[in-house]
Simulated assay, not measured.
Amino acid sequence: MSNVRQLRDRTPDSEKITINLGYVDLGRIDLLVQEGFYSNRTDFIRTAIRNQLGSHTDAVSKSIERHTMELGLRDYTRADLESLQKAGEVLHVKVVGLARIASDVTPELALATIGSITVLGALQASAEVKAALADRIQ
């Protein structure tokens, strides 16, 4: 008998991206890291991105309002979608951040209840649900 227990899978709270930088810019970042202004390259890049996003806060807020998008994390459970199906309603997902469709949602239920998906950030759903909704994901 094992003393190991299975814990819930932890959903990552970030998305990995790749960028290409010129050697001069990269060298300047490395110099700032070496001088102790930043702990590493990633710290510099995250700080730069946050500063840029902060300088555009009003524009982002107005755009979210204009597009009636939800900001942050939005979970869609099987119960949510079954309620929509029972009411004969179709969902149009519009999220800035992370949209998650529960792992127990079937492709059939997703097709019956989700009319379109627009996510600026990341969409987490089973491969089967993503494949079923491929033509509805923008």
Rank of each mutant, 00 (worst) to 15 (best):
M1N: 08
N3P: 00
N3R: 09
V4M: 07
V4P: 00
V4R: 11
R5M: 12
R5N: 14
Q6C: 11
Q6K: 14
T11R: 12
T18I: 09
I19Y: 01
N20H: 04
L21P: 01
G22P: 02
G22Y: 05
V24S: 05
D25R: 05
G27K: 03
R28G: 00
E35F: 03
E35K: 10
F37V: 03
Y38I: 02
Y38C: 08
R41A: 01
T42H: 11
D43H: 10
F44D: 05
R46K: 15
A48T: 11
A48Y: 07
R50Q: 12
R50T: 10
N51Y: 06
Q52D: 03
Q52A: 12
G54P: 06
S55K: 13
S55R: 14
H56D: 02
D58Y: 03
A59W: 02
V60P: 00
V60H: 02
K62G: 11
I64Y: 03
H67G: 07
T68H: 09
M69V: 04
E70Q: 13
G72K: 15
G72I: 15
D75E: 14
Y76D: 08
T77I: 10
A79K: 12
E82G: 08
E82K: 14
E82Q: 15
L84F: 14
G88R: 05
H92Y: 13
K94S: 13
K94I: 01
V95M: 09
V96Y: 06
V96L: 08
V96S: 02
G97T: 07
G97K: 12
G97L: 08
R100H: 08
I101K: 06
I101Q: 05
V105L: 03
T106E: 02
L111Q: 11
T113P: 05
T113W: 04
I114Y: 04
I114M: 05
S116P: 01
I117A: 00
L123K: 04
L123S: 08
Q124N: 09
Q124E: 13
A125V: 01
V129A: 02
A132P: 04
L133I: 00
L133C: 00
A134W: 05
D135C: 03
R136W: 07
I137M: 03
I137T: 02
